[in-house]
Computed example of a mutant assay.
Amino acid sequence: MSFTLGSPPLFSRGTVPRAAELRGNHGEARQAWPAAQVLLVDARGRFGLDGDGMRWTPGPQVGEEPPEGAVLLGVDGETYRWALRVDEVAEPAGDARTAGFHLDGDDAGLLVTALGLLNWHDSAQFSPTTGQPTAVEKSGWVRRDLSCGREEFPRTDPAIITVVHDGADRVLLGRQAVWPDRWYSTLAGFVEPGESLEQCVIREVYEEVGITVSQPRYLGSQPWPFPRSLMVGFAAVGDPEEPLRFLDGEIADAAWFTRDQVREALTAKEWTDPEGVDDGPPAPLRLPGSVSIARTMIEAWAAAD
């Protein structure tokens, strides 16, 4: 069987230009600061909420000019959008997992850009080469080693995430021991050096559940800033008759589910709704929330004939 994603994952729908050509054009950035909007994000990744959207703070309320540590996310029309790490965010506030599904595509895209950049800055304050302090440059997109001038750029860690199905009516989902009861998802893992994405799909599925899959096929991708990953979605075919073995200890349980079981689970309230997690009779299957590409891929498989 063949299927495609019905729409891009939530965090991959942003259309606000990143304006990379303006990074480092500090004169223009500073001149536009009085009309800038800043997203304040605390150390836990929480940001302010304004209704169902993100709360933006006018630049002049943050400082007379872009403060050190501020990162330029893009230019929305004539408005420069920035993000800044702060100690505390005023309520109401939320994070990407619990409040992200309320956001439109542009806000969601700006949010994951902010989180990925700020998380990188938190861990890149010293050069990995010399151990010397680094300074922020180019509107938050570069850190420079103060001892030698070497530039360090934001890191993105690629990871595959895979819908394993039998080519017909069953899909294989797994769960980690720390997850809530009955919550299952697709299989995922980081790409290793010297490995293609397709090779990673085959290796990770084997390590996690002990079966050998074939026909890895690209579906789509999504930034996942926890802390700075790019999830690359695939479909692959496995044999339900092959015994499941949890070789690397990451997966506590896995099972094959029918299309009808998955479709029923998709109608339940999301885990991101705290009041809906255990609403109604116990269900055999709960699925990830809509902010995850896992949900998008499972929906696409379930919708196929």
Results as ranks from 00 to 15, higher is better:
residue 2 S to E: 10
residue 5 L to G: 08
residue 10 L to K: 03
residue 10 L to C: 06
residue 12 S to P: 05
residue 13 R to A: 04
residue 15 T to E: 13
residue 21 E to N: 07
residue 23 R to C: 10
residue 24 G to K: 10
residue 26 H to D: 15
residue 26 H to Y: 04
residue 27 G to N: 02
residue 29 A to P: 01
residue 31 Q to A: 11
residue 32 A to G: 14
residue 33 W to F: 10
residue 37 Q to F: 10
residue 38 V to K: 01
residue 42 D to A: 04
residue 42 D to T: 01
residue 45 G to R: 03
residue 46 R to W: 03
residue 47 F to A: 07
residue 49 L to S: 11
residue 54 M to T: 09
residue 57 T to P: 03
residue 60 P to R: 10
residue 64 E to S: 00
residue 65 E to L: 13
residue 65 E to K: 15
residue 65 E to S: 15
residue 66 P to S: 04
residue 73 L to K: 02
residue 78 E to K: 12
residue 79 T to D: 13
residue 81 R to S: 09
residue 85 R to P: 05
residue 99 A to P: 07
residue 99 A to N: 07
residue 101 F to H: 15
residue 110 L to E: 07
residue 112 V to N: 02
residue 113 T to Y: 00
residue 115 L to H: 03
residue 119 N to Q: 12
residue 119 N to H: 14
residue 124 A to V: 02
residue 126 F to V: 13
residue 127 S to H: 03
residue 131 G to Y: 04
residue 133 P to V: 06
residue 134 T to K: 01
residue 136 V to S: 11
residue 148 C to A: 11
residue 148 C to F: 12
residue 150 R to L: 15
residue 151 E to G: 08
residue 152 E to R: 13
residue 155 R to L: 07
residue 155 R to N: 05
residue 156 T to L: 12
residue 157 D to I: 00
residue 159 A to R: 02
residue 161 I to N: 04
residue 165 H to I: 06
residue 167 G to L: 12
residue 167 G to D: 13
residue 171 V to D: 02
residue 174 G to H: 10
residue 176 Q to G: 02
residue 179 W to C: 01
residue 180 P to E: 09
residue 180 P to D: 05
residue 185 S to G: 15
residue 185 S to P: 04
residue 192 E to K: 15
residue 205 V to F: 00
residue 210 G to V: 01
residue 214 S to V: 14
residue 220 G to S: 11
residue 221 S to T: 06
residue 223 P to D: 08
residue 228 R to W: 12
residue 230 L to V: 05
residue 230 L to D: 14
residue 235 A to C: 12
residue 238 G to A: 02
residue 243 P to K: 11
residue 244 L to V: 11
residue 246 F to V: 08
residue 250 E to C: 15
residue 255 A to E: 15
residue 259 R to C: 08
residue 259 R to T: 13
residue 263 R to S: 10
residue 263 R to A: 10
residue 271 W to N: 12
residue 274 P to H: 09
residue 276 G to R: 12
residue 280 G to I: 12
residue 281 P to K: 01
residue 284 P to Y: 11
residue 292 S to G: 00
residue 294 A to Y: 07
residue 298 I to N: 04
residue 301 W to L: 02
residue 302 A to F: 00
residue 305 D to L: 14
